[in-house]
């Protein structure tokens, strides 16, 4: 099962290496990882996508909690949340496919951020499914390369249920 884990960590050197060392040293897999600052510049937020059975995920969460530089660990599976990832796709379509590429970009609310004599570079954000779907559709039209930011995730505001 795939899990998106959000970490609040001290913004110090060596923290990333402690985290990646934890995963590699114990044979856990990192599917994607993204890091950025938070409002408080001393704290960074990391989003890690990993997978494993229930027991492995439990160990990963506990091991992360145990790392001294990690302030908070949240498994997004437990929360209602929004996930996004951005992808840049460089595509070299044949003349006859160009219109279709632009149409698809539009449908997926992407934009062309660079265009050259042979290629377009398309920027799209969305959740996992949306990005996978777009890549699937564009593949036959000549994707040269693409690059993904890795997922980021944020919990939705909790809305109190009205008491009955």
């Amino acid at each position: 099962m795939r899990h998106t884990i959000s970490l609040l960590v001290e913004n110090k050197f060596g923290v990333l290496s402690r985290i990646s060392g934890l995963f590699s040293g114990r044979g856990y897999n990192i599917e994607s990882l993204s890091v950025g600052e938070t409002i408080d510049p001393q704290i960074s937020v990391m989003t890690i996508v990993t997978s494993g059975d229930e027991q492995i995920i439990e160990q990963i969460l506990k091991q992360l909690n145990k790392l001294i530089d990690i302030i908070k660990v949240v498994d997004m599976i437990d929360l209602d949340h929004v996930e996004r990832e951005m992808v840049l796709i460089k595509i070299a379509p044949r003349q006859e496919d160009k219109a279709e590429v632009l149409r698809l970009t539009d449908i997926f609310r992407g934009r062309v951020v660079d265009s050259g004599p042979k290629t377009y570079t398309i920027e799209v954000t969305g959740d996992e499914k949306k990005i996978a779907a777009l890549i699937e559709l564009l593949k036959p039209m000549g994707i040269k390369e693409f690059i993904r930011t890795g997922k980021i995730a944020i919990a939705r505001e909790r809305i109190k249920k009205p008491s009955v």
């Binding site: 027991q55 439990e58 160990q59 506990k62 091991q63 909690n65 145990k66």
Partner: peptide, 8 residues
């Protein structure tokens, strides 16, 4: 004392 020891 170490939660990671439990159910490891």
């Amino acid at each position: 004392i170490d939660p990671t020891s439990i159910r490891k």
